[in-house]
Design a protein around this nucleic acid. Sequence first.
DNA 1: GGAAGTATTTAACATATGATAAATAATTAC
DNA 2: GTAATTATTTATCATATGTTAAATACTTCC
Lengths: 187, 187
Amino acid sequence: MNSLFNFFKGYNSLSKEAEKAIAEISKIVAVKKNTDLQPIGHTCKTIYFINKGVARIYYFKDGTDITECFAFENNIIARVESLFTGKPSRKAIQILEDSEVVAINSTQLFKLYDKYPEIERLFRLIFESAYVDTVNRIESIQFHSAEERYNSLIKEEPNVLKRVPLKYVASYLGITQVSLSRIRGIK
Amino acid sequence: MNSLFNFFKGYNSLSKEAEKAIAEISKIVAVKKNTDLQPIGHTCKTIYFINKGVARIYYFKDGTDITECFAFENNIIARVESLFTGKPSRKAIQILEDSEVVAINSTQLFKLYDKYPEIERLFRLIFESAYVDTVNRIESIQFHSAEERYNSLIKEEPNVLKRVPLKYVASYLGITQVSLSRIRGIK
DNA sequence: GGAAGTATTTAACATATGATAAATAATTAC
DNA sequence: GTAATTATTTATCATATGTTAAATACTTCC
């Protein structure tokens, strides 16, 4: 859990007591490549932290597999559109390499918010930051060409291409795999 | 301020004391059409609530004016990528009709979070909800055609077209004004 | 280590949206 | 109320990305 608590420190330092409370509702899980951590249709009740490995959120749009986002080591991944609404998610979380993740029970976490305002603040800050990333991503999708988006991805996350099949990268960039292949061919 | 406190009730009911604390750091402002509430380059230190009127967030991308979002009556508008990072915003908030807004000083608001966890929770819930909207908007931009996006906009926000110049709607939809005009012409 | 299954690339053609320019329509200001 | 400005539409042409299909390349598994 150490890397999880280190990750937290970047947002809000917790008291030992609060850390203990979070540890009690979390567990470390080893997950095999290509397994779904949480399936489509399931109401999200877990926030995951990636200790080792890669995960993605995906869903089906008209029968084709769409990747919403990736998460690598030392990052959190959750289907917020379900987590924050209590509605079943149309999305799934899939593990892309043999991985080790920390699973935090969100139902119990939200209960801790009453007793530990510092925990509520921590997750407020984490999700505010994720919200900002999402706002910035809209701009990237809407006003950059596929090629520009590909170039900034390899610049900002060069590991993605090494660790994730290109077909998943393509839908993350909002294009078909064929288009991605063409863009890569140009260089 | 009544409509503001009613808006809050949809997220987290506040004690009278907390309401009073928020009232003390807020003021009602009348704003004329086409004025910038906050200019580009300014670090966002105000959260606005629209009592009456319409506002938009916009920025310039390669010299062209891009609308990021609109806000109508009984909604909040803020440049979160500045509010939550403390960095100057590349975006501005503009009023599109003679309007009345409530301006909440965010520096003072964030200070209230320590004394009133209920206020911190309120804004956590407000922004979690806005975050979910943003995640859903990505899907809409990425995997629906311009025509589909236009149709769902007139379905979900029919007022937009009546109250907002089409050129602003076009960039909000991620297309040029000419394309929007063509799409409207088809029907 | 070869067969079967997956992933990636390449090619040819189709189409939605962009860019530019010009025509109308609506608004604003004196 | 007319002129000036601004917003919207229409038309033409250019281009990025989509679609389909087939060819390679790479993995996985018995």
